[in-house]
Computed example of a mutant assay.
Amino acid sequence: MLLTKQQTRIYRYLETYLRRHGRPPSYQEIREHFNFRSLNSVAKHLKQLERKGYLESPWGNQKRAFRLLPLRTTAAAVPFLGRVAAGAPLEAVEIPETMEVPESLLSGGNNFALQVRGDSMVDEGIRDGDVLIIRKQEYADNGQTVVAQIEGEATIKKFYQRHDQVELRPANQELEPLAVAADKVEIIGVVIGLMRHYKR
């Protein structure tokens, strides 16, 4: 599973500490190194690493009792630009964060990630909460799944254009297509990959 930039920094710190000292750092040492406000913050970050499969705590609640699992290196950091609707258009909010993405999901050019909100693309296998990998480009072929912007708001739909009209089609039989004049639609990029967290 993907790591945020902050989670990667924590993992690298733990890795370096273990190599130098032969044991994990204490919660207090982690808190002081990253200037976290509380030990509870440390616990939350470590739990996220454990949930994503990069850390293991086989000895219960002992605070130094964890071991690191290998960090997958065939990944690249791409900008995470927020959340975008797979239902009605929703503003995609840019936030200062990156995500590690398997290189197999990337393609040439600029790539970025967005998290899906809504279920209008569920018949294409795109579910609420999925992270989409987008290749940034200003054009699309008919039938491609795109992130399109309409009057400042972004949405995920299948793209079809005929003359001066664009139809943005959901992949959900309960929803209607969105018909828009071509000059009102800005293509932000084309969907090239998807990542999903499975809840345990």
Rank of each mutant, 00 (worst) to 15 (best):
A179D: 04
E32L: 11
L114V: 14
R51P: 00
R9G: 02
Y198C: 00
T145D: 01
Y139V: 09
P24C: 08
A148E: 03
V101N: 02
D141K: 05
D141V: 00
P170L: 03
R83L: 00
R196M: 01
V101F: 01
I10K: 05
D130P: 03
G108V: 06
T155L: 09
A113N: 07
L175M: 15
K184E: 11
G82P: 02
L46V: 07
L69M: 11
K136G: 09
D183S: 11
T98G: 13
E15Q: 15
L46N: 06
L55H: 13
P89C: 06
G22F: 04
Q165N: 03
T98S: 12
H45T: 10
E56P: 00
T155I: 10
I192M: 09
F36C: 04
Y54C: 13
F80A: 04
T145I: 14
G189P: 12
G108Q: 03
Y17F: 15
V101Y: 03
F66C: 08
F80C: 04
E151Q: 13
V116W: 02
A92W: 08
L106R: 13
E97V: 14
R37S: 14
R20E: 15
L55I: 07
N111K: 03
N61Y: 00
R51V: 08
R12V: 11
K158M: 08
A140P: 13
P102I: 01
E94K: 14
L14T: 10
L106G: 14
F159A: 07
